[in-house]
Design a protein around this nucleic acid. Structure first.
Lengths: 220, 220
DNA sequence: TTGTGAATGTGAATTCATTCACAAATTCTA
DNA sequence: TAGAATTTGTGAATGAATTCACATTCACAA
């Protein structure tokens, strides 16, 4: 059971690690492991056992001393916390390179993120079938989002138009937006906006290699 | 000039923010701004001015008191730090949904990440032309990586085979790997491995919405 | 049923990151 | 040329996240 202290502020990094735990637990479930210790969980994610226990402790106490955590049950609990035990209605705006790839990305489906609508402004794409979903005209964005009870919108349009799209999305009452355009977008206070910056990790590697060459740094 | 105190350990978040500054500076450059203050830079990234100055101070002192930072010069300096003022030879392994989209992703090009080789194991894809690059047989992976002086490898293959690929990549002497497969990979101590977990941000939004419904949390 | 070993859950200690606050430097104005 | 207005750069202070360390709990074996 999720304890009431969950009202306390949870750090972003804890949530991100919860995602990691969830994934490892899925693997462990497939391996038919009944229980897992914080030590084992930590090892698989290159974290410390204390970190794992602390993270989980924010939400309740799921383990058994001397034994560890029940794999299936813990996965279910984390799923509950992250909202993965339910389906989310998602819309994709923009079906260029990235948008198109994401529509076909099975992992989203598996996690309960169901892409129900696809939008584009390209007349050649509108009306065409994309992995079983009809591409809608972006002109009808706000109305269609409302009519279809969309809860999360993914933005995969060129940077130049991303802000206009977001304004439209916000006007439709959407409270959660995932942005793939490499640009900073403005949203009202009550809207959650997350950015997926595809170049950032490459840049980190670039930085790491630079420092490696200059003899400043090692990988770990 | 980059000062010698750059030998101190730089935190991951500082590097990530450097990426953000770089992007903002590119925009400011296009807007023909000559200088920018830490205040303005902070505002654009929703950070504090102190944060911006502290981040930069790890690498040297680039600003002028009373005036701010010279846009072009600072961009150049950050580019130097992140290794963006040079070209990197990159290889893509796997041209499914994601791999294929990334090969066509202009932003990588712009930042100096040049995808020189593409690998797949699908006979129908091997030999075919993908955005001007011939798809190679994954059997020749290690040899081709060496022969073409590849420095960074992007993994976009199914989770089930990702570890085998990585082992092969490592055996070719590659020191920097970006992994898009939703799985934890093992690499030796001296290899930089970064993971791009496409579901993580969606899961964060999912968590945020859950808490919003339960009245626990606001967006900011 | 008792003892041993294992592993959790959590305050306290520590480490790490961010923000404060201000002297120093420089621009700008008149 | 002097005084006002900015804004940097950075130690010090604060705040946040991680790790430590251990009492507590439980499983399991004999």
């Amino acid at each position: 059971m999720i304890s009431e202290n969950s009202k306390r502020k949870i750090s972003e990094s804890t949530i991100r690690r919860l995602s990691l735990y969830y994934r490892v637990l899925s693997v462990l479930e497939k391996e038919n492991k009944e229980t897992v210790s914080s030590k084992e969980l930590a090892k698989r994610e290159k974290l410390t056992p204390a970190q794992v226990r602390k993270d989980l402790s924010f939400f309740g106490s799921f383990g058994t001393r001397g034994l560890g955590y029940p794999v299936m049950e813990l996965k279910k609990q984390i799923g509950e916390i992250l909202g993965l035990n339910r389906a989310w209605n998602v819309a994709m705006v923009g079906v260029g390179n990235i948008g198109s790839a994401l529509v076909g990305y099975k992992e989203f489906q598996r996690q309960g993120f169901h892409i129900k609508l696809i939008f584009d402004n390209d007349q050649r794409k509108i009306g065409s079938n994309h992995k079983g979903i009809m591409v809608s005209d972006i002109k009808n964005l706000a109305k269609e989002l409302r009519d279809n009870n969309i809860e999360i919108v993914i933005i995969a349009v060129p940077s130049t138009v991303a802000q206009y799209i977001v304004d439209d999305v916000v006007s439709a009452g959407i409270k959660a937006i995932l942005n793939f355009a490499p640009v900073n977008l403005r949203v009202p206070e009550d809207v959650f906006l997350r950015n997926e910056n595809m170049s950032m990790e490459l840049e980190y590697l670039s930085f790491a290699l630079m420092n490696l060459f200059e003899g400043r740094l090692t990988a770990k």
